[in-house]
Nucleic acid binder design. Sequence first.
DNA 1: ACAAAAATGATACTTTGTATCAATTGGAGG
DNA 2: CCTCCAATTGATACAAAGTATCATTTTTGT
Lengths: 146, 146
Amino acid sequence: MNRFMEQFMKSGYKLTRPRRLLLERLEDLDRPFTAEELYEMMNREGIGRATVFRTLKLLLDIGILVRVHLEEGCQHYQLAAGLPGEDHHHDRIICRFCGKITDLDECPMRNDVAAIAKRSGYRLQGHHLDLYGICSRCDADNQKSH
Amino acid sequence: MNRFMEQFMKSGYKLTRPRRLLLERLEDLDRPFTAEELYEMMNREGIGRATVFRTLKLLLDIGILVRVHLEEGCQHYQLAAGLPGEDHHHDRIICRFCGKITDLDECPMRNDVAAIAKRSGYRLQGHHLDLYGICSRCDADNQKSH
DNA sequence: ACAAAAATGATACTTTGTATCAATTGGAGG
DNA sequence: CCTCCAATTGATACAAAGTATCATTTTTGT
Ligand SMILES: [Mn+2]
Ligand SMILES: [Mn+2]
Ligand SMILES: [Zn+2]
Ligand SMILES: [Zn+2]
């Protein structure tokens, strides 16, 4: 009964065997993953295709997962950072080598974003920022292997 | 022989009938579109499925089109803003109502992005920013219709 | 006009995701 | 603990999105 299961129960849905197994796997996944990757894992334990896709949709809805759009290849998922229901702010920095994603705790936007937006004629509602770079681990690895 | 066709020729590929027709349609498309939408348009003129998908890939490669990841539903395409080969900077503001995308001419990042990134242990390479809001046209329309 | 190379479109296929539905199961209430 | 029923499941068939193949056509340099 990990933190995901508790959060899941609160949502009112039944905590079934397939869902429990899936939520267990999530513990380990520290990288974005595709539906197909998850399906292959779960299918080894007998979980059906439809169930995996249905559950993914549920977890998005509940807020346990968020969709991630990487530079190439969309339709990835990852654990939602921070607490659900909170301000939906997901500025982040992504390693171009290994795909690791770290959420920024500070928003690096200038104060005059709103002004810039207004000049373009839009009423601003929100934003999403992705920084790209190389994480320290990959950076170190690449130094060595050269 | 519009600006796209000239740019296309320079790339060294043959300017064939299907490609010419497709590049003509692009003139009009001021919104992001899916491959399927484009296929349906072109198919009315006898262009085959494979050709449309192949040509899309070509145009991405040449830099006439860029891929756009919208909040919901990825895999859209739109005309590349600015000149190709230039700094790959595509910060933009997107209308949540009609999908209109306007590129920002100014980058609203604070000067200390690099510092924030460094604190997270990454070596920063670039970024991508999406602002979200309501465009002036949709804003006005919504006022009226209420 | 000719030939070679590039491109096309029909077709079949793969991949990714969804609808259907009979069978199963979790868990609320007795 | 047992019962019951709505919720859920997985098999299957299907739909949508994209790719490989290949015989035929088109483009372009000469
Ligand atoms: Mn921010
Ligand atoms: Mn910028
Ligand atoms: Zn990395
Ligand atoms: Zn709009």
